[in-house]
């Protein structure tokens, strides 16, 4: 475990837990894309199938449980909570995410490390995570209002991806045979998706103006 990876995991944890706590506290999910939250719950469900059969470390197991619990809790709040669900921006969150899920599943069947159920599901979760943020970015473009709830969420997610790339560079140079093309390519694609958001986020932050994404 290197510092980049620990910092990446912590940043990822903060992004999900802060979102959950904010939704729980202000009883609102305005600006949050339910589609992205559902995709993330699916990412964790598909990736952590080995939760009870492949013990890596206590840290690994605890973090998996926290990610599963928090992502499914957010989906529950947005779909079932009597107050929060009314604040969900249904008519703008219209990204057809089955157009994302199916291609990722097909790609996982074609490109994986081993053609076993768990490995195909693992590859599926890697590809799905790379594009899971798209409905959220589309929603932000549509509603053009980026209150701090979603702005921080996307910012922390992007930071977690950048830290993971630094982690892979570190591991590549320090561990022999550490090569994971599937994670690397999907991870780079995912980070690039955040790049333009980062650009506008930092500009708005520097000019101290409300973040406006181009139409």
């Amino acid at each position: 475990m290197n510092l980049f990876r620990l910092a990446g995991d912590m940043t990822h944890l903060v992004s999900v837990v802060v979102l959950l706590l904010k939704i729980h506290t202000i009883k609102s999910c305005a600006g949050v894309s339910l589609k992205t939250q559902e995709l993330y719950a699916l990412v964790f469900a598909a990736r952590y199938l080995d939760l009870f059969v492949h013990f890596v470390s206590l840290y690994n197991t605890v973090m998996k449980l926290v990610f599963l619990a928090s992502s499914f809790s957010i989906v529950w709040y947005m779909r079932k909570h009597k107050i929060v669900r009314r604040t969900y921006d249904r008519e703008h969150d219209t990204f057809r995410h089955h157009f994302i899920v199916l291609p990722c599943l097909v790609l996982a069947l074609l490109i994986n490390e081993r053609f076993t159920f768990r490995e195909v599901m693992w590859a599926f979760s890697i590809y799905l995570e790379a594009v899971a943020i798209l409905p959220q970015l589309v929603l932000l473009q549509r509603t053009r209002n980026i209150d701090n709830l979603t702005g921080q969420y996307v910012f922390f997610l992007g930071a977690y991806r950048v830290l993971y790339i630094l982690n892979w560079i570190y591991r590549y140079f320090t561990e022999p045979h550490f090569v994971h093309w599937i994670s690397w390519i999907a991870g780079i694609v995912q980070t690039v998706l955040y790049a333009d958001f980062f650009y506008y986020y930092i500009i708005s932050w520097k000019n101290n103006v409300k973040l406006e994404l181009p139409a």
Binding site: N60, W122, Y164
Partner: peptide, 10 residues
């Protein structure tokens, strides 16, 4: 070895 074969990252 199992760690190397499996995925040790979250």
């Amino acid at each position: 070895s199992s760690e190397l074969s499996g995925h040790d990252e979250l």
